[in-house]
């Protein structure tokens, strides 16, 4: 697996798109830190961008990479390598190169700006960790979609739909449910519903660590327990890990049973 990862990674970090992605974050970071001059404000703006953009890029890159390297994958399949190694290698290659673009792109301006002197270092690291998780999750999901769809256009369409669903539609349905059933106690439901969408989960996780969590705890005892203590943080992190492991597991499972 290591070797495949290495080659996929090298292949990707030399691609134009990786540079564009990296440059985008670099530019964003510089603009935010040097024009805004307020690290915690920048963290919130970055959060808004990261939780939407990272999943989108992860999904599209994942699908693109999978379909583009399909023939090469066949070549590898004829080599004495385990199937799971090939797909995991490619998956981690894509995910790690995307993560690297994100971490370096935002990290460099932050370090130059003087992150280590800032008390926002924890918030910022959390932001990057969440970004990395989102990359892992959405790349894995897109690999799953690509594995299940031979048709490139279909796979691409489903991936974009998946992103759209997670980023926007899910919250819309969530909101409608909350409003329709407003007479009932909904705090447990809304926490659970948050856990079922990695984008919502990441957003909550970051908000938890920002001052703004007090705002969320305002609503009731269960929210207060969740957002006001470490419970919420621990549960959210565990759920994110679960969200990462499940699609990777399915990826391996599917890959072992697929004909090429």
């Amino acid at each position: 697996m290591g070797k495949i990862l290495k080659y996929s990674f090298y292949d990707l970090i030399r691609s134009r798109w990786s540079y564009i992605y990296f440059m985008f974050y670099l530019l964003l970071g510089f603009v935010l830190f040097f024009l805004n001059n307020d690290v915690s404000k920048a963290v919130i703006t970055l959060m808004n961008i990261i939780i939407v953009l990272v999943p989108l890029i992860g999904t599209i890159f994942g699908v693109m990479y999978y379909y583009n390297s399909r023939e090469f994958t066949e070549l590898l399949l004829a080599q004495p390598i385990k199937r799971s190694s090939i797909f995991l290698g490619q998956y981690f290659g894509v995910a790690s190169s995307l993560t690297l673009s994100l971490v370096l792109g935002l990290g460099i301006p932050f370090v130059l700006y003087g992150l280590f002197r800032s008390d926002a270092i924890f918030d910022f690291s959390l932001l990057l960790i969440t970004g990395a998780f989102l990359t892992l999750i959405f790349t894995a999901l897109s690999f799953n979609i690509a594995l299940s769809n031979e048709n490139k256009i279909k796979g691409f369409g489903y991936s974009v739909l998946l992103w759209l669903f997670m980023a926007v539609i899910y919250d819309g349905l969530f909101l409608i449910t909350l409003i329709l059933f407003e007479e009932y106690p909904l705090d447990t439901f809304s926490l659970v519903a948050t856990m079922f969408n990695p984008i919502d989960l990441s957003r909550t996780l970051i908000l938890l660590k920002l001052d703004i969590s007090a705002l969320l705890g305002y609503t009731g005892a269960i929210f207060k327990q969740f957002f006001g203590t470490n419970t919420g943080f621990v549960i959210s992190i565990l759920m994110l890990i679960l969200w990462t492991i499940l699609p990777i597991w399915r990826l391996v499972y599917k890959a072992k049973r697929k004909d090429f």
């Binding site: 808004n48 939780i51 919250d171 957003r203």
Partner: peptide, 9 residues
């Protein structure tokens, strides 16, 4: 409870 959607797209 809809406050959990704070800052969502």
């Amino acid at each position: 409870e809809t406050i959990v959607l704070l800052r969502s797209l």
